[in-house]
Amino acid sequence: MQLLGRLEIKSKQKIIEFLNKEHIGRIASMDRDGFPQIIPMNFVFVNDAIYMHSHTRGEKIENIKRDPKVGFEIDRELEFLPSYFSSPTDASQADTLYISVVIKGYGTIVSKNDEKSMALNALMEKYQPEGGYERITPDMPVVDEVAIIKVVPQTMRGKYKIGQHLDKNARKNLAKKIFERNSSTALETLQIMGFKVTESNLEMVEEPVW
């Protein structure tokens, strides 16, 4: 329990920052036979709610209309830690650094065009920040041609594992191994862990506390 507490993201602002950066989330709803259906979706978090666009018909739409209780999950694998970081032979020592957020809430299908156009514009701003499009207004035909799913969180919990559960020396040692392994995500992971990377050196510039 103590370790789980140290892995929990305490800052709502950090959770929101993570949501704003990630591009794929997964919505879970219950089908008519009582089985969970999980669908990957583009999404935006705005006005304390998750918004997604969808076809006007589909199983997830019917699921939400029938039972509005839904789950929503977002995660990012930061770095796979090979078993040999900890042991030369024990494969069970392999681990992963990650960030994740799990939301439980109520889903609805937005009916008002003002809210639908707001959500569509927010999605475009997130996924196409360079512009190059005409802003959507409530009277445009496209607003009636898509469905907007809204999820209002009842609970929103985040977890992260970026070395904060280790003492300072162990964290530095882990960072050195990640640096030397030099995966495609290593530099970004080290920055998230609170390290400044130079050509030949690692320097911890901040404690990884969220």
Rank of each mutant, 00 (worst) to 15 (best):
Y106E: 12
E203I: 15
F179Y: 08
F179T: 07
G163H: 09
L7T: 13
V142W: 08
H55M: 14
L123D: 06
V146T: 10
I9K: 07
R57M: 15
D75V: 07
I39Q: 03
L190Q: 05
N201V: 07
R32A: 15
V46P: 03
I148G: 00
T185Y: 08
Y127H: 13
P153D: 03
W210F: 03
K21I: 09
S92T: 15
A119K: 10
D33N: 14
V70S: 03
R181G: 02
T96H: 03
P138L: 03
K21G: 04
E22N: 10
L81K: 07
M124Y: 05
D31S: 09
A122I: 00
E180L: 15
D139F: 01
I39A: 06
S29V: 15
Q37G: 14
L123S: 06
A147E: 00
G25A: 11
D167C: 10
Y106L: 06
Y98L: 01
I9D: 02
K112M: 10
K60Q: 14
I24T: 13
M204D: 00
I27M: 11
P40Q: 06
E22S: 04
S184Y: 04
M193W: 01
S92K: 14
H55L: 09
V101W: 02
L81Q: 03
K161G: 01
V146F: 01
G25Y: 12
V152D: 03
